[in-house]
Design a protein around this nucleic acid. Structure first.
Lengths: 233, 233
DNA sequence: AGAAATAATATGTATAGACATAATATCGCC
DNA sequence: GGCGATATTATGTCTATACATATTATTTCT
């Protein structure tokens, strides 16, 4: 029909940014002007530019207009797959083994890393250690604390066959959380579990999820040496 | 006025997903139905649900309707800051030191990791090794290959005071790339540069950016022990 | 001059209506 | 029953218009 889609407009805007027809730091024409120039409605231009702004390629402010940032802060998006799906996606057969299971008071190290109010004083948490396998090889060691108050049913759930993460995804509703990536040298216990030399460099994900203010679960995933996590820019 | 914004609709949809009023696997009401129920236009519902689908919390297909996925693949977005800004954001004073600079043929290891056509046969690349400092402490070792064909001017650029990354961001236009995170044990040379024990576990980012098919730059960033990268879910 | 009130303006968003598109369901035919 | 053509349907998108909102520019007042 009109053949001018928001994708068309977006591509054209991208082209002008990349060719420096719109140089870094400069202000670009108003939506209304672009709409007239490109022959489409302002809403179409709006959608195109809004998405570019969300991606960090433009900066928009009411009344001040739209500018090409001098130092674009590019945003990358990555998917946080369930480990089983991650393994399957690599063409391997996923396995899961629960190593230890206990109910313990929250350790000081965990309490220190949480904002106040995440846990009631003296809270008892479910502590899990489990190993994810890819084929016959260890893939990832999971060390997890679960708050039974926000994950009711976890204490009686059968976690021998299903990963706690999958149980939580299906049975709780989190409203937020954060995630951090890092690296650490394998300690003796971890090395034994992952069947790698002590001191080997492991990719580590620390993840915390909340329901409102309250902690649902905190987990550290230590991946076997060589693991890489991919993302697109 | 109407007071029903797309954010309102989105929040309500999120609530229904979280409370399992819309259980995993189920199909949710059509846009038109929701619009009537909530008292807004279909376009408003569309924007709310579209964003949830982009975040992985809903699955939408024409004619088939909208469903709550059984296994939501949550997507997390993180910002890829310029290292200098990363250091400043941690409240430290950034520093930069160019260690070595040479023009060499592309090494086999790099060629192997690139798709065919990324580089002409026998291409000469600029090889850089540089150290980023936070205060007086080493922060990150940068090992980079730059393709002068897609980064014209790089061979005569003054890279002693400015990071090659910043030069590239300001002087080239990339159309895509990919990024991978991993961990590795510090080799002797890297350990010396980062002032850490050999074998220490380092967080590593491998990043490649392209202009169309052609390589612009490939870089490995090895962060000093203890570095963590944060993201929000 | 400096501060406070006011006007102007670009983006942000809502709406109703229309058509496009992809996927599914149904019908007719062999 | 199986297959292919056709109808149906939910989402995807564009348009024109209107009003909201944040921010900047201007004017007015002291």
């Amino acid at each position: 029909m009109s053949s001018i889609t928001w994708q068309t407009v977006q591509a054209e805007a991208l082209r002008r940014i990349r060719t420096r027809e719109w140089p870094p730091g400069s202000r670009i024409p108003d939506e209304a002007v672009l709409a007239a120039e490109l022959g489409c409605a302002r809403a179409t231009v709006n959608r195109a530019l809004r998405e570019l702004a969300e991606a960090g390629l433009l900066e928009r402010r009411r009344k001040a207009g739209t500018r090409v940032p001098l130092n674009p802060v590019r945003k990358a998006t990555f998917e946080v797959p369930i480990i089983r799906q991650d393994i399957e996606g690599r063409g391997l057969v996923p396995g899961y083994r629960l190593l230890t299971r206990a109910v313990e008071p929250a350790p000081a190290a965990l309490l220190a890393s949480l904002p106040a109010g995440s846990l009631p004083p003296g809270a008892q948490l479910l502590r899990l250690r489990a190993l994810h396998l890819a084929g016959d090889a260890p893939f990832c060691l999971e060390e997890r604390w679960v708050n039974p108050l926000t994950a009711p049913g976890i204490l009686v759930a059968d976690l021998d066959g299903i990963s706690a993460n999958e149980w939580l995804v299906q049975n709780t509703s989190f409203t937020g959380g954060d995630i951090a990536f890092g690296a650490t040298n394998a300690d003796a216990e971890t090395a034994a579990a992952l069947d790698c030399p002590p001191g080997a460099s492991l990719f580590v994900i620390d993840r915390m999820t909340r329901a409102g203010e309250a902690l649902i679960t905190s987990v550290r995933l230590s991946y076997a040496p060589g693991y890489q996590m991919q993302a697109v820019i």
